[in-house]
Design a protein around this nucleic acid. Structure first.
Lengths: 152, 152
DNA sequence: TCCGATTAGATCGGATACGATATAAATCAA
DNA sequence: TTGATTTATATCGTATCCGATCTAATCGGA
C-alpha cells in the first residue's frame, strides 16, 4: 500500500489505457509508412484513401467515406489534393449532379498496385498473430462506433 | 477465381490492412470519448496528456513527449491550452532555464482522478481479451517505432 | 574564459479530423 | 408546379501531428 509522494495517489498509468495503445500505434504506423510514401508523394491518409479506391472504383464521396469512417468535410480537401497530384479523377455524376464520383487514374492505379506495405508487415513483429490482431482491432473499432452511435 | 470487371485486378481490400484497423480504431476511440470529454472541456489529446501527467508530476516537456511519442512542436500548443484552461501549470526549471516543467493544478488533478474512461471499457466489447489486446497493440507500436528508427 | 556546438522549447507551414454551416441539386407535398 | 424539405458536397474554424527552422540557455574544448 506504499505510495510515492510525488506521484498521483490515483495516478493512472498511460500503459493501462487501450485508447493510448491504439493512439500511439496509429502514430507509429504513420511514421513507419512515411519514408515509403514520401517517395511517391503521398501522405498516410491519402494512401489509405487510394487503397480504398483500388478496392472499388467509381464510388461517390459518401460511399468512400463509409469505408473510411470519414465525411466530406475531411475527404474533400484530400480528394482535391489527390486529383491535383494526378492520382484520381473527380466528376459529378450526370444522373445526380449532387454526387461526386471518384476513380483512380492509370498512374494512380499503377502506383497502388505495387504493394507499398509489404515491407511493413514484418516491421510489425507480429508474425502469425498478424491476422488475429487485425481482426480484433477491427472488432474493437466496430464495437466502439456502435456504442457511440447508440447514445445520440 | 472470378473477378468483377469494375474492381481492380489487384484491388486491396481495406479490411486486410492492419494499419487501417488501427487508424480507424483510433478515430472510433476519439468519437467514443468525445461526449465524455466535452463535458469537462477537454479534447482527446489533451485528455491523454493529462493522464500522462497524473502518472508522474513535475516532468519536462520532452519527458512528457517520450511518454506520448510526441515532440514540442505538437505538445507546446496543447500544453498552453491546458494551462490557459487552468488544468496544468507550466514553469521554467530554475536549475536549467531551457526546460519547462509541468504539473497538474488541484482542479486538473481532481478532474483526472474521476475516471472518465471506465464506462468505455465495456463499450470496447472485448471482455476478457481487453488486457491482451492492449498489450499486443502496444507491442505492435513498439516494434514499428523500433523498425522505423532503425533505418534513418 | 570564450566561442562554437548542443540542447530544450517554441514557431511556422502543410495536412488531417471534425462540428457547424453553406450551397446546390433532387425530392416531395399541397 | 412550386415551395419546403432532404441530400451530397463543400467551406470554415479549431485542434492536432509533424518536418523544418528559430531562439535562448547550457556545455565543452582550446
Amino acid at each position: 500500500m506504499a505510495r510515492s509522494p510525488k506521484t498521483a495517489p490515483k495516478g493512472r498509468k498511460l500503459s493501462n489505457f487501450l485508447c493510448f495503445a491504439v493512439y500511439s500505434a496509429n502514430l507509429a504506423f504513420g511514421r513507419a509508412y512515411k519514408p515509403l510514401l514520401d517517395k511517391v508523394g503521398l501522405t498516410y491518409t491519402q494512401y489509405i484513401a487510394m487503397v480504398a479506391l483500388s478496392d472499388e472504383d467509381e464510388v461517390t464521396v459518401s460511399a468512400l467515406g463509409e469505408k473510411l469512417f470519414l465525411e466530406s468535410n475531411t475527404l474533400t480537401p484530400i480528394l482535391k489534393k489527390l486529383e491535383q497530384t494526378g492520382y484520381i479523377k473527380r466528376y459529378r455524376d450526370p444522373a445526380d449532379e449532387r454526387q461526386v464520383r471518384l476513380s483512380l487514374t492509370p498512374v494512380g492505379r499503377k502506383l497502388i498496385e505495387q504493394d507499398l506495405s509489404v515491407s511493413l508487415v514484418e516491421a510489425t513483429g507480429l508474425g502469425d498473430e498478424f491476422p488475429v490482431v487485425q481482426q480484433t482491432v477491427s472488432r474493437l473499432r466496430d464495437n466502439l462506433l456502435r456504442a457511440t452511435k447508440a447514445d445520440d
